[in-house]
């Protein structure tokens, strides 16, 4: 099946796209409602009929984190999946508990911020690349970096080069969730204290230096701090709890 863009010769009700499966919930006896982050149609919710039967033509292709080419029939509220082909099943993610929980956190975060039927190709590409990177380099830094980049993409780029309250220079001692950036020693009141090296690591990640962070990761304490701040910032701005973060 070609991985063509939106629309089709048979009118607007049938469309093809590529996407990453974000989640799937049971529906009735043998169906599931799958949520996909697609390239051309934004977040799509569609019914996969008979998928829970062992002889289903969809098989395991619509499991979360799978990158697929799909065809859907547009419905009023829910679309109906008619064909699916796997582009990348990310098998490495499924066979390592740590990787799986990090991948699921990224999927949940995208599910929270993406809008239904609002195309966001940048978000789709970022998720797809992050899953591929996580499968190749299983490190908690990948999902942490994904969260920071997601915040940046959604308009909450972290401020790490000057104090968010007084504009003062480093060293920075705390993080202000509301302002979305660092605080210097004089403005630390009310901020979340952070370990030395945290701001520098966040700056490297959002500044295009993720490869460097993966090759030369900071110590576990700093990485843990960067991860906790990323989750807290994401939850603060999305106003929703990232449920899967507690299992990481």
């Amino acid at each position: 099946m070609p991985t063509a863009a939106p629309g089709s010769a048979r009118g607007q009700r049938l469309y093809r796209d590529r996407g990453v499966v974000l989640r799937s919930i049971k529906l009735g006896e043998a169906d599931r409602i799958v949520t996909l982050m697609s390239e051309g149609h934004g977040k799509v919710r569609a019914v996969a009929k008979g998928i829970r039967k062992t002889g289903s033509k969809f098989g395991g292709r619509l499991e979360p984190a799978t990158h697929v080419a799909f065809q859907c029939h547009r419905g009023r509220e829910l679309d109906v999946v008619t064909q699916v082909e796997t582009i990348d099943a990310h098998r490495a993610l499924r066979e390592h508990y740590g990787c799986l929980t990090h991948a699921v956190s990224m999927l949940e975060a995208v599910d929270q911020v993406a809008l239904e039927r609002e195309p966001d190709p940048a978000l789709y590409r970022m998720l797809e690349r992050a899953l591929r990177t996580l499968a190749e380099q299983p490190s908690p830094a990948v999902s942490t970096a994904f969260f920071w980049k997601l915040l940046s993409l959604e308009g909450f780029h972290p401020v790490v080069d000057q104090c968010t309250r007084c504009g003062g220079p480093a060293p920075f001692r705390a993080w202000d969730l509301r302002a979305g950036g660092v605080c210097c020693g004089a403005c630390v009141l009310g901020g979340r204290p952070m370990a030395p090296g945290t701001a520098e690591t966040i700056a490297r990640i959002v500044g295009g230096g993720l490869a460097g962070v993966l090759a030369d990761p900071p110590d576990d304490r700093v990485l843990g701090e960067v991860e906790r701040l990323a989750v807290a910032s994401l939850e603060f701005h999305s106003e929703r709890r990232l449920k899967s973060a507690s299992l990481r």
């Binding site: 002889g55 033509k57 098989g59 395991g60 292709r61 499991e63 099943a89 499924r94």
Partner: peptide, 16 residues
């Protein structure tokens, strides 16, 4: 593979 199923419909993970 499920007994009675078609190989052509098997997904990549299951077949692998």
């Amino acid at each position: 593979l499920p007994v009675g199923g078609d190989l052509e419909y098997a997904d990549e993970i299951t077949l692998g």
